[in-house]
């Protein structure tokens, strides 16, 4: 799509489509990752139209292998594994995105302040150290025992241990950026503190933060599945991939499809999110982006 003349002048592609294709050519990982994730999001949103009732129990059809009627087979209660996998996308995607959003938002706010204001730093970081000392899984189990299992509680249980990690990252980046001469230059030219934080510090945190957010998202998806697998996550009647894998565990050697399909979906989602994160990091950093282009 790029018209390159003999004088090495790269002309900007014309039109909306041209620019999109040019972007796709330069950043294949971002485009592939976004596409798969968008597909998963679409599946999650349109689940009721794509599959039958995931909770419908039909003991006559139990433990059926994949067939024309049941694409992914059925489980020990005769529930359609395909329908449950499709609906499970909702849980995983919701938990992953919610945890990533909340933990980065909270972590960014705390980290920015801690990194720039020295007095706050000491206090906040000790609290964060304390939070990090709590084992995530134990915390989740305790929370479930106290407040009962629900998707909302799962999100809270995963977000809380993730926040200190984000805070540490943001604070570390802020500490290096605040010493950069361009921040001094901004101070010297009369820039006020809020503007320094927003215009000079924040944009330079963005790249590592986005990457961190995708890793948080990926790990949240895994932790949710793990908690569900242990029975401390989403309620058993909710079709989440972790619950399905827990159900299928007993039958794995003879009826592997019950565990296999949600497992594949889980792996695909985590991989996609991680690939997307790496792609975004390269794209968001203008220096690396130009070199790769």
């Amino acid at each position: 799509m790029v018209a390159t003349s003999t004088e090495f002048v790269i002309e900007r592609p014309q039109g909306w489509l041209g620019r999109v294709l040019e972007f796709a050519r330069r950043n294949p990982t971002v485009v592939i990752g976004t596409s798969i994730l968008a597909l998963m999001a679409a599946v999650a949103v349109f689940a009721p139209w794509l599959a039958t009732d995931p909770l419908f129990i039909n003991p006559i059809d139990r433990l059926k292998p994949p067939s024309k009627e049941f694409w992914f087979g059925t489980d020990h209660l005769g529930r359609d594994v395909y329908a449950r996998t499709v609906f499970g996308t909702r849980i995983s995607l919701t938990v992953g995105l919610a945890v990533a959003t909340f933990s980065t938002a909270i972590g960014l706010a705390i980290g920015l302040v801690a990194g720039y204001i020295r007095i706050v730093d000491a206090i906040v970081m000790r609290i964060m150290d304390g939070l990090m000392a709590i084992p995530g899984i134990l915390f989740a189990i305790a929370l479930m025992a106290l407040f009962g299992s629900s998707v909302q509680n799962v999100i809270i249980a995963i977000t809380v241990p993730e926040v200190p990690r984000v805070v540490r990252l943001v604070r570390a980046v802020v500490l290096t950026i605040r010493e950069q001469p361009f921040v001094e230059a901004a101070v010297a030219s009369g820039t006020r503190l809020p503007r320094i934080l927003v215009r000079h510090i924040l944009p330079n945190i963005f790249a590592p933060l986005i990457v961190q957010a995708t890793y948080v998202c990926a790990s949240a998806v895994i932790v949710e599945a793990l908690l569900s697998f242990l029975g401390a996550g989403t309620p058993p009647e909710v079709p989440s991939w972790g619950n399905m894998m827990a159900d299928g565990r007993v039958y794995f050697q003879i009826k592997p499809w019950i565990l296999l399909f949600p497992g594949i979906c889980l792996a695909l989602m985590v991989l996609t999110v991680n690939v997307l994160g790496d792609g975004l990091r390269d794209t968001l950093d203008p220096r690396i982006a130009r070199r790769m282009g």
Partner: peptide
Amino acid sequence: MQMVFQDPYSSLNPRMSAGAIVREPLKN
């Protein structure tokens, strides 16, 4: 009083366009 810095690389915000860098003091 304004300052010209030693390192022309690290004294310019890598995420601001040249025009925005020069206009920032005016905006302030």
